[in-house]
Every structure is written in C-alpha cells, then in structure tokens.
C-alpha cells in the first residue's frame, strides 16, 4: 500500500470521525444530508459483499467493517435518535436521491468488469459513490450557517477522493497490471463534483470568514 492510498483512507476515516463527533457528541446533524448518508450505506453494502468471501488483509477487513457500521449507524441516528433527528434539516434536504440509484444500476449492468452478480454490484457501488455527494452539496448551498464540522466533513471526503486519484497514478506506474478503468473514470467525475466546494472552502479559510456557498 502506498502513502497516497493510506492518506486517502485516513482522510476518509477522519471524515467519518468528524461526522460521528458532531452527531454523537454534539447531538446534531444540522447541515448533513440524510439522502447522501443513505446512499453511502447502500454503496458500502453493495461493494463489500465479498467481505467474508475474499480475505485481503486485516486492515482491509477492519476498514470495511468500520465504514459499514459507521454509515448504517449515522443513518440510524439521523432517522431514529430522539434528539439528533430533530436537528435534521429535512425541508432543505430535498434532492430526489432515489433517482440516482436506478441509472447507476442500469449503468452497472451495461458497464462492468465481468457480468457476475458481485462484479455488477461492485460497479454499481462505484457509480453510486460518484454521485452520492450531490444531495449533500445541494443542502450545503441552501444552508445559511455551515458549521465548521460540516465543512470539515465534506472537505475530508473530497480530500480522500483526490488522494485516491494520486494513488491510482502511483499504482499505474508501479503496478502495470493494475487498471480499473471503471473506478478511475467514476472517481475523477466524483472528485470534480467537489471542485466548486473546494474553491469556496479554501477561500473562506484563507480569508478567515465563515464558509458559505453561493446559491
């Protein structure tokens, strides 16, 4: 495992920790999109179907379990926890996320590495992850006061994607047989979705003003 990959996984983990901190400690999910969180839970469930079939490493297994458990518990908190759910900004989180699922499934049936159940589900998870951030970005645009933890959460998620691209470039040159075009293309699309957010995030940080996305 190279340094970019490890750094990418760590920023991904950090984003989850920041979100859980906000939800578990501050008991607030203000500014967080339940739609995006539900999509992530679906992404991990679809991608990690081989969890108990293919053992890669202890690191791999533990990280998969962490992402599965955290994504489902975040959804649970936002839907069921009696204090947290009251802070959910339902009125602004209106993205029709169900309409993302079917096209991703259709695309996975058409474009996959092999036409088997697990490979189709893997491709589906890659496509869905690429667009899963959209409800969150829309909600941020509609949020007047984006708190620091929410901003940091999205920033770390975006950083994880950038680091994964650097990891692929590194692997391309060091492991000639390592080419997953599906994840590369979807990953680049996913990262581009953050470009706008990154711009405003860095500007607010540089100028030391509160983060706000133009509508």
């Amino acid at each position: 495992m190279n340094a970019f990959r490890l750094a990418g996984d760590m920023t991904h983990l950090l984003s989850v920790v920041v979100l859980l901190l906000k939800i578990h400690t501050i008991k607030s999910c203000a500014g967080i999109s339940l739609k995006t969180q539900e999509l992530y839970a679906l992404v991990f469930a679809a991608r990690y179907l081989d969890l108990f079939i293919h053992f890669i490493s202890l690191y791999n297994t533990v990280m998969k379990l962490v992402f599965l458990a955290s994504s489902f518990s975040i959804v649970w908190y936002m839907r069921r926890h009696k204090i947290v759910r009251r802070t959910y900004d339902k009125d602004h989180d209106t993205f029709r996320h169900h309409f993302l699922v079917l096209p991703c499934l259709a695309l996975a049936l058409l474009i996959n590495e092999r036409f088997t159940f697990r490979e189709v589900m893997w491709a589906f998870s890659i496509y869905l992850e690429a667009v899963a951030i959209l409800p969150q970005l829309v909600l941020l645009q509609r949020t007047r006061n984006i708190d620091n933890l929410t901003g940091q959460y999205v920033f770390f998620l975006g950083a994880y994607r950038v680091l994964y691209i650097l990891n692929w470039i590194y692997r391309y040159f060091t492991e000639p047989h390592f080419v997953h075009w599906i994840s590369w293309v979807a990953g680049i699309v996913q990262t581009l979705l953050y470009a706008d957010f990154f711009y405003y995030y860095i500007m607010s940080w540089k100028n030391n003003v509160k983060l706000e996305l133009p509508a």
């Binding site: 990959r5 996984d9 293919h54 890669i56 791999n60 998969k64 092999r114 490979e119």
Partner: peptide, 10 residues
Amino acid sequence: AAGDIVKDEL
C-alpha cells in the same frame, strides 16, 4: 484474466 485482479481498495 483481467476480472481476477484483486479489488483491494475500499
């Protein structure tokens, strides 16, 4: 085969 490449990323 290409499909046999281990998917070791998260």
